[in-house]
Nucleic acid binder design. Sequence first.
RNA 1: GGAGAAUUACCCAAGUGGUUGAAGGGGUCGGUCUUGAAAACCGAUAGGGGAUGCAAGUCCCGCUAGAGUUCGAAUCUCUAAUUCUCCGCCA
Length: 427
Amino acid sequence: MLDINLIRQNPEKVAASLKKKMWDVDFTELLKWDEERKALIQVVEGNKAEMNRLSASVPQAKKNGEDITKIFAKVKEIAKNNAENEGKLKELDEKIYNFLVVLPNIPDDDLLPGEKENNKVIRTFKEKPTFDFPIKDHVELATSLGLVDYERGVKIAGRGSWVYTNLGAQLEWALLNYFISEHLKDGYEFILPPHLLNEQSGLVAGQFPKFKEDVFWLDGLEPKRFLLPTAETALVNLHRDEILSEDDLPKKYFAYTPCYRREAGSYRTEERGMIRGYQFDKVEMVQYTKPEDSDQAFEELVNKAERLVQGLGLHYHVSKLAAGDISHSMARTYDIEIYIPSIGIYKEVSSASNARDYQARRGMIRYKDKATGKNRYVHTLNASGLATSRIFPALLEQNQQADGSVLIPEVLQPFMGGLKVIKPIKK
RNA sequence: GGAGAAUUACCCAAGUGGUUGAAGGGGUCGGUCUUGAAAACCGAUAGGGGAUGCAAGUCCCGCUAGAGUUCGAAUCUCUAAUUCUCCGCCA
């Protein structure tokens, strides 16, 4: 949610910023409603004040034996006139809310306008791996090593699903364990949230109303619930409608959940296997900070996500996203993209974003500023740390050997009973 | 799934239609006393949103939420949410 004051003060500037996100908006109507609303509030409240005064005078008038029916009539008359105004006011409030609630966040000033083509790679880790043998893709590797059963996944669930089997399940779990242990070391609080969330949570995170069709909704519970598309949705709502103490900030959380998304099925050869499914595992970090601390927190989150990939020894780069490619709710996003040799492209394993006060405004998440005693909106930030569904294939492909085996990164070995290499199953 | 009860401020809680501008207690904060602390005593403690104003202030809305009745609602009615108790079912 954008601050309407910002729009009042400088509508052209806000419109220009949103334009960078490829979002055309004209505030003329909104500002007109806003003016009308202010004028109407004064009328409505003035009338209410008058009614309150009159009603309060009844007991005294009774005591004095005055004619109170006149007072009753007067109040009734004012109430009748006011009802219409109140109706109009409610309508205006709704119109203003509906206008504001769909607007995306304002991108940071230093971002390039436009979409993907204007994303900029700002750092790279390691060289692109080279192989002196014909490489296999991750689907082939996962199958020949007995790590993933795609066919049985489709059999028991349908398209867009797979089964981690045996060492594959262990590898997946080892990745998650490795991420979790690193976050614990860094003092982040571990959360296991529910996976079925209510609509308000989606609204506060900024996924709704725009992306209501992109999540899975469940029948059978009223009011309806949806399967979380990312743990961010849960974590960012933890302190909804709360006023935190300044000493509590920053709040640093991480959660492991599967993520459920409808977008699977955009089947392209580059999205074979587990690159895009209805369900994938992810560890997600979220921070609540004071506004002045959020830039630093953003760097911390990007850095943490990078260190996780570095620990695995995999080649990746960091992209600073153009304004039009960052998500609806976010002001700034860096993607960490990992190299997948078989398709020769980089795929997102972490997306680190600063929502600034956009989500906090929607969720009334505030803290009491000690110096002024005033309540201020917090800033919320999130970053994957990490999503396994791209790490897993990248790891298999980047670490494959000529004999078809795959080396397990040292950091994962303790979580896999010391196993150093996964060898093909003999037929 | 069924039945019943409850929801008041940081916590507990009084309050069944009009000086409620919400009692009282606890806690917290400040003070007195003390070498320091405890105890005791004194004082403060309704938050939040909005309108207006340079400001002080004034006003509107706030007793879970939303509707309604009434000149007037914490109080009466309806709907919903949540919590608790009991019954049923169940991993």
